[in-house]
């Protein structure tokens, strides 16, 4: 019976949104938001690190949603709502001068867009650069990044293999990735 609480419902987001825009019925918007409230809550919790503040934020984001939902074009509701939620939290952190709680560095790095149109020679050059950059990483970062991205191990396995804690593994991967990106950008500029 575990399936009862979690029906898949990405399909009818659009329908509910359209219905709300046609009718202005708050209950419809409520239903739509209910379906995503869990996601919004976790995102808030991730940034605000406090459940009571996060609960309040979920409600504030709902109000923000009411104001913005008809003014912006929304292609995929869940992604749009995620960006709205994240910005709300970041704004709150800034306003509250709580920046020491979460530094910007800790935030998720967006994947680096490699030049997808690069030809074979370009790719080869990038791979060489990547190898060189990998060599330059601090040992722990190098090992973690290598195990994760190249050997496709999950965090837990990496922790078991290396003896690092789970938290360390995550941080090595995150920092290693950032350092790689910086190194790649630098070598790209040179080339």
């Amino acid at each position: 019976m575990s399936g009862f609480g979690t029906p898949k419902k990405d399909v009818d987001d659009d329908a509910l949104l359209r219905h709300y825009r046609d009718t202005g019925d708050m209950a419809v918007l409520g239903e739509l938001y209910q379906a995503h409230a869990e996601m919004v809550y976790y995102v808030c919790l991730r940034y605000l690190k406090d459940s009571e503040r996060s609960k309040d934020a979920v409600m504030q984001i709902f109000e923000e949603l009411i104001h913005k939902v008809n003014k912006q074009e929304i292609q995929r509701f869940s992604s749009w709502l995620y960006v709205l939620s994240r910005n709300h939290c970041l704004m709150q952190l800034r306003v509250a001068k709580n920046r020491h709680h979460v530094s910007i560095d800790e935030f998720v790095e967006f994947p680096l867009a490699m030049h997808p149109d690069g030809d074979g020679a370009e790719k080869e050059k990038q791979l060489t650069a990547l190898e060189r950059c990998m060599e330059r990483l601090p040992e722990k970062q190098k090992r973690s990044v290598d195990l994760f991205f190249l050997n496709e191990k999950c965090y837990k396995e990496i922790a078991e293999l290396t003896g690092y804690s789970l938290k360390e593994v995550k941080s090595y991967i995150q920092n290693g990735k950032r350092n790689l990106r910086l190194c790649m950008e630098a070598s790209d500029g040179k080339g």
Partner: peptide
Amino acid sequence: HLADIRKRIAECTGQRQTA
């Protein structure tokens, strides 16, 4: 917490809980 949030949203929109 999520149960609490759902309740608050429902109150806020006049949704019936059955919704």
